[in-house]
Nucleic acid binder design. Structure first.
Length: 534
RNA sequence: GCGCCCAUAGCUCAGCAGGAUAGAGCGUCGGUUUCCUAAACCGCAGGCCGGGGGUUCGAAUCCCUUUGGGCGCACCA
């Protein structure tokens, strides 16, 4: 009667509705021209229950079919955790395919800001999640080390350099230059090391030398900050190399030969509007300097065509979201299926301190950087908070909350669950009680509500990772971690382990150890410490 | 003016391939410790899911419209 139907089975919100539930009867009602209840009854009559964990199937509500399983299936899940350990929950969705996650990619003309911090946490977690589901992941940072911004940076440095050596009035500072203190600092340091020898060379050379020096320094501190933040990139890809290798020219030629470019007002344009953007974009300015967009096209050609990535994920702050549709259009222009490129646009961050929006760093008085955050709240709290919310949601980061060592702070809540478990294991171990091996325990002794709920949650873990991977949404795991910790704390308060009858001690100990395995694994995916003591 | 994101409890947010009484944390208030970590647990209170239309047996979820906020709309990145 019905040939193909995607059957959706879900875990009902209320446990009285069974372990699993499907609304398929209601989905089919229209097509089958039968009332949902009748379809549900027919389905239930035809379910073969022998040899399965199904204990009972019931029709409920407007046409739901609820499945009640033997508790055995829960115990099976525990067995799986005991056997697979840290591999529990690992899937093979990716099947070894090559995926690149490009994130942060901050302009090296200054320090990392809050947008980079959120993008960093999200990008790295996505990379970790994709690794867990069987992708071959490359983390990449694209360095904008050429182009208009770098020119401007060089000009600013040059002005500061000359001002420092010959006085404030010796040269005018460029109107649209980088006014920050850090630019002066770079110039000062350069003089300290190399003296005034740049005064005697042509301006172009001078700017180049200064820019190279300062970009190097900035990149070094960016790299340092990211490392403290738990992020290590596999590739630092320099924009400049696209020009040096000829790939940029190849890309422009390709676009030109395919009739996708034209000249207007002395500039070269690309017909992105053919692929659905509001307007065409400039590739080469009338002054001959290529735009950032142009080199980004060459960059993506490199990702897909040269390096053969099956899939690329870019993280972009909301302030750059206009770039997203342009890039998609460019993919089509290159003949790369636009669905191979996922662009995640994450919303910006607002910091709060004392209930007010915080803009300036306490330490430096300048705008708040990633380094400031790491200083003030530490890596664990920062990563947790930046991963707590769906990327599409605006994020309010409460600095006071993040440092509080109390129940107001969810980071500690999860970490505490882990530390508590480790402590239990230590205490029991000291009494000679060890975590039992998979076959050496009667899990059926676990039957209080608190125990069963905890096990049920653990059983959901693989699915949870799958969803996080499919939706590229780390916040899914952060919330799961909080829920799991809550169920564990509940279990802890209602079920004692130590001092109980030996077989029950073993069974509960197995459950506790499985919980530890999963919590540690999630914290690992979120790049947060799993402390053994607190 | 055009485009993207957001709007759900006092606060911060889940839920959004339509489904059974809308969830959690924090905050408020009240309880739990001769016992494996009280950074914990248990309980009470708290909601016309921004407003208005529509589609549907059924809408927080989909469509239209409107209001309020964020961000874009460069020969910047």
């Amino acid at each position: 009667m019905i040939n193909e139907w995607e059957i959706i089975i879900e875990v009902p919100r209320e446990k009285e509705f069974g372990d699993f539930s499907t609304n398929m009867a209601m989905q089919m009602a229209r097509e089958a021209r039968m009332p949902p209840a009748k379809i549900a009854a027919a389905i239930i009559n035809n379910i073969e229950m022998d040899g399965t964990y199904i204990k009972k199937v019931e029709k409920a509500g407007p046409g739901f079919i609820n499945f009640y399983l033997e508790k055995d299936w829960l115990y099976q899940a525990l067995q799986a955790i005991m056997a697979e350990r840290e591999n529990y929950g690992k899937l093979d969705i990716g099947k070894g395919r090559k995926v690149m996650v490009e994130f942060v990619s901050a302009n090296p003309t200054g320090p990392l800001h809050m947008g980079n911090a959120r993008g960093g946490a999200l990008g790295d977690c996505i990379a970790r999640i994709l690794e867990a589901v069987g992708y071959d992941v490359t983390r990449e940072f694209y360095i904008n080390d050429t182009g208009a911004q770098v020119e401007k940076f060089g000009a600013s440095l040059e002005a500061r350099y000359i001002q420092l050596l010959k006085g404030e009035d010796a040269v005018e500072f460029p109107e649209d230059g980088y006014h920050g203190e850090d630019v002066i600092e770079h110039a000062r340091n350069y003089i300290k090391i190399h003296g005034d020898k740049l005064l005697g060379i042509p301006s172009g050379e001078r700017r180049k030398m200064l820019a190279e020096y300062a970009l190097g320094k900035n990149l070094e501190s960016i790299r340092n900050d990211l490392e403290k933040y738990g992020i290590k990139f596999d590739v630092w890809f320099s924009e400049k190399t696209l020009y040096e290798s000829g790939e940029f020219d190849e890309t422009m030629e390709y676009l030109e030969q395919n009739g996708l470019t034209y000249e207007k007002d002395g500039a070269v344009w690309i017909k992105t509007s053919q692929f659905g953007t509001d307007k065409d974009e400039v590739l080469i300015r009338s002054n001959g300097i290529p735009t950032y967009f142009a080199s980004d096209i060459a960059y993506h050609r490199n990702k897909f065509l040269k390096r053969k990535f099956d899939r690329v994920i870019n993280l972009l702050g909301a302030d750059h979201h206009g770039h997203s549709s342009r890039m998609k259009a460019a993919m089509e222009a290159l003949g790369v299926g636009p669905d191979k490129l996922d662009i995640i646009v994450f919303q910006l961050v607002r910091l709060y301190r004392n209930g007010e929006i915080a803009r300036m760093s306490k330490r430096t008085g300048k705008s708040i950087t990633l380094a400031d955050i790491l200083d003030e709240v530490g890596k664990d709290a920062a990563r947790f908070f930046f991963s707590m919310q769906a990327s599409g949601s605006h994020l309010d980061f409460d600095l006071d909350m993040a440092v509080k060592q109390s129940d107001e702070n969810p980071v500690y809540y999860v970490q505490y669950a882990h530390a508590r478990i480790c402590s239990m294991l230590r205490v029991l171990e000291a009494e000679g009680v060890k975590v039992p091996a998979p076959g050496q325990v009667d899990l059926a002794l676990l039957k209080t509500e608190a125990e069963l709920e905890l096990i049920r949650k653990l059983a959901e873990y693989p699915e949870e990772i799958g969803i996080a991977a499919r939706t590229l949404e780390p916040s899914r795991l952060t919330r799961y971690a909080i829920e799991l910790a809550a169920l564990f704390h509940g279990f802890y308060n209602s079920c004692r382990v130590k001092g109980k009858e030996e077989s029950l001690v073993k069974a509960r100990l197995a459950l506790v150890d499985c919980t530890r395995t999963v919590i540690r694994d999630i914290l690992n995916l979120l790049c947060i410490n799993a402390p053994e003591k607190m």
